[in-house]
Amino acid sequence: MIKHLVSAGAVSAILALAAPIHAKDRTGYQAIAAGDLAAAERILVAERRIFPSRPELLLNLAAIYGRTGRTAEASTLYARVLKLPATMLDLPSGREASSHALATVALAAVQRNLAVASR
């Protein structure tokens, strides 16, 4: 089983950012951590062409969409993660989290933010 590191997003502690264990940044983690969301998005879109169902790619791209105001797109990606089999992802703290747990919490936050914005 391939495991990936996952850390919390800056906008919300619940938005997942996955990082590969290997040096090459194929999940956009390093670009996201550096605040370069445009570069991260380019990486993620390219990787999704090859691996359209990798949950760490979907979670990271959804986090970017959420941070850049594309909440409908973020919600769609989180919902897609929930339709895939759950995958355990390593957190930088050494803990693990299910892709489903991360997507559920992040999706709830996106929906909550939409509700607040519509008031």
Results as ranks from 00 to 15, higher is better:
P85M: 01
A34Y: 06
A8I: 07
Q30Y: 12
L102R: 10
A117F: 02
D25L: 06
A18T: 13
R54K: 11
G66D: 03
G94E: 07
S7G: 10
A109Y: 12
Q111I: 07
R112F: 14
H22F: 14
D36Q: 07
Q111L: 14
L102D: 02
Y29A: 14
V6G: 06
V11W: 08
D25V: 04
A23L: 12
V81Q: 03
P55Y: 00
A16V: 08
F51P: 04
A115Y: 09
L59M: 04
I21T: 14
A40H: 01
E41Y: 01
N113W: 10
A106L: 04
A106Y: 00
I14H: 13
R67N: 08
R112A: 15
A108F: 10
L89T: 02
T87S: 09
E56D: 15
R112E: 15
A86V: 00
P55R: 07
Q30W: 11
V110M: 14
P52M: 04
M88E: 13
I32E: 08
D25H: 03
R67D: 09
L15K: 09
S93H: 06
V11T: 11
T104D: 12
P55W: 02
L37T: 06
A13L: 12
S99R: 03
L91N: 11
E73V: 03
G66C: 00
R49G: 12
L107P: 09
S7Q: 12
G35D: 03
E73K: 04
R95Y: 14
A39N: 10
L44G: 05
G66H: 02
T27P: 00
P55D: 08
L5F: 14
R112G: 09
P52Q: 00
L77A: 03
R49W: 06
A63H: 08
G94A: 08
A39H: 09
A72Q: 08
T71L: 10
A63E: 07
D90A: 13
L58F: 01
K24Q: 15
Y65I: 00
V110W: 05
L37A: 05
E47G: 04
A97N: 10
T87E: 12
H100P: 05
M88N: 11
Y29S: 13
H4Y: 15
D36Y: 05
A79E: 12
T68Y: 02
L102F: 05
P92Q: 12
L57T: 05
S118Y: 08
V6A: 14
H4K: 15
A31W: 01
A16W: 02
L59Y: 04
V6K: 11
S93T: 15
N113Y: 07
I50V: 12
I14M: 12
N60D: 05
L44W: 01
V105E: 14
A72Y: 00
R112P: 00
M1L: 08
A16G: 08
P20Y: 09
Q30T: 13
A101P: 06
T71G: 03
N113I: 07
A101R: 15
H4C: 09
L44R: 04
V81I: 02
E73S: 01
S93F: 07
A31M: 05
A38F: 03
S7M: 13
R49C: 08
G35T: 05
M1P: 09
I43S: 05
R80D: 12
G35E: 06
A10I: 10
L58W: 00
Y65F: 02
L114F: 06
S99I: 01
L37W: 06
T71K: 02
H22P: 00
L77F: 00
E56W: 03
T68H: 01
I64D: 02
L102I: 09
A33P: 05
Q111V: 08
A62E: 00
L44T: 04
